[in-house]
């Protein structure tokens, strides 16, 4: 299995430390950078994310990473906000996103649900793929978010919270997870390991 260097994209809003710790546990080689020049040499890319879509897109834009991210052909994993910005737009402060996957990211809302969606919830797999290889459908992952995308043809896993939303997506070399792989215990590590070894 080939295990090239993983580049963690540091754009000032992500949870770099937790993702680094998780990769360390897996024994994967990685580096952290905010510069396209350096990240270009990565054989895989991870875009972590905490916070909200607008500031994430603004930070990527300031770093000159937006156009570059649209053209990469190495495996890419977006986590949380890092997944949301793969879509066309987010209604969170009406933010244009990367547009790699069609669709909108909208607020989770509804009677009897508390927002943010915070805690462990289940991911039901609707398609096979290398990222979720060996993970049983209905497994629990840790979520913290207030916005989500509706399932569409690029959805690999979905989760229910007030409504059904896309919790795992893939469009060619672009993968995204709405949950935090780096905070989802052994099963989360397994997903990250799949990304590093199989995607």
């Amino acid at each position: 299995m080939s295990q090239g260097k993983v580049g963690i994209i540091d754009y000032g809003v992500g949870n770099i430390r937790s993702v680094s710790n998780a990769l360390k546990r897996l024994g994967a080689s990685f580096f952290v950078s905010s510069k396209a020049d350096e990240l270009r040499h990565a054989e895989r890319l991870i875009l972590p994310g905490v916070g909200e879509a607008r500031s994430a897109m603004e930070s990527l834009d300031r770093g000159g990473l937006v156009d570059w991210l649209r053209t990469i052909n190495v495996p890419f994993l977006g986590i949380c906000i890092g997944m949301q910005i793969l879509f066309e737009r987010s209604t969170e402060r009406d933010t244009p996103c990367l547009g790699i996957i069609p669709g909108m990211v909208t607020r989770l809302d509804g009677p009897q649900i508390k927002v943010p969606h915070m805690g462990w919830n289940r991911v039901f797999l609707s398609r096979e793929g290398p990222l979720m290889n060996g993970i049983p459908s209905g497994e629990y992952f840790y979520f913290v978010h207030s916005y989500a995308a509706s399932p569409n043809e690029y959805t690999i896993g979905r989760t229910e919270y007030g409504r059904s939303f896309a919790s795992v997506v893939q469009q060619s070399n672009y993968y995204g997870v709405q949950f935090h792989v780096e905070k989802s215990g052994p099963v989360g590590l397994r997903v990250l390991q799949n990304f590093v070894e199989r995607c």
Binding site: G110, P111, Q112, I113, H117, M118, G119, W120, N121, R122, Y140, F143, T159, E160, Y161, G162, R163, S164
Partner: peptide, 15 residues
Amino acid sequence: KTIFIQEKSMLTKRI
């Protein structure tokens, strides 16, 4: 509607 929503929201209680 209430029952439907409760079944759909599977967020677990935390320890």
